[in-house]
């Protein structure tokens, strides 16, 4: 297979397979979770589940001051790489073209040098996250193979994307193909790993806020 055929494959059948698995997997997982349902609460309510749930979806973005003090590294670096990923994934012109092509929805891109900078910062933050995972006793205690796998499949598209944009190391079609392939890997693994949190965090926060809201507590 020549590199251009490799590129054709990842842009064609590869992406097709990956997006089918991604969409299929994510929806199946959400059904698997939501259809379990939960018992109706028979206790007299002291507040609204809905407003508590919706509130917590947003309020969890702003940690309490003590939480911030105690988990400063996790919060700051976590914010950096999440925002960085958002910028790189959703505000880079070529990526928006893809999204627009598939969904019909589009928006304007950030200037490329800003995205480039965001990519570098994101990669540094991700490297710091890995280091934290390896060094911190709690993170180490919690770590499973899956945590490293998830880190890797998040990091790979960043690196390959960066190299592809700057055209370093390999011929351009190979770089672009590897970049797309790494995203396809991410998409395929997404529904079956904790990458799912990108969707389920909304459910979790809602349930958390609803359970507390029912009792009149803002969680």
């Amino acid at each position: 297979m020549t590199e251009i055929e490799f590129l054709s494959w990842v842009r064609g059948p590869g992406f097709q397979i990956a997006s089918v698995i991604f969409v299929f997997g994510v929806i199946v997982r959400l059904f698997e979770i939501l259809m379990l349902g939960r018992k109706a609460n028979l206790a007299e309510a002291n507040g609204s589940e809905m407003s508590g749930g919706v509130r917590t979806i947003f309020s969890r973005m702003a940690p309490e001051s003590d939480t911030f003090k105690r988990s400063r590294f996790t919060i700051v670096v976590g914010y950096i790489f999440h925002i960085g990923l958002f910028i790189v994934i959703f505000l880079f012109a070529p990526h928006i073209l893809l999204i627009t092509e598939v969904t019909g929805v589009g928006w304007s891109a950030l200037p490329t040098p800003i995205v480039d900078m965001a990519a570098v910062i994101t990669m540094i933050a991700l490297a710091a996250v890995l280091l934290h995972r390896v060094k911190d006793p709690v993170m180490q205690y919690l770590a499973r193979m899956e945590d490293y796998l998830v880190w890797l499949v998040t990091f790979l598209p960043m690196v390959t994307g960066y190299l592809a944009f700057h055209r370093m190391g390999l011929p351009a079609p190979s770089l672009l193909a590897l970049h797309i392939l790494s995203i396809e890997l991410l998409m395929v693994l997404f529904p079956f790993t904790k990458l799912m949190h990108a969707f389920t965090f909304i459910l979790s926060r809602w349930y958390n806020g609803a359970i507390a809201g029912y009792k009149g507590v803002r969680s």
Partner: peptide, 11 residues
Amino acid sequence: SFLSSCVHCGM
């Protein structure tokens, strides 16, 4: 949903 969401952040 809780167990699907945990990313082992340690917070």
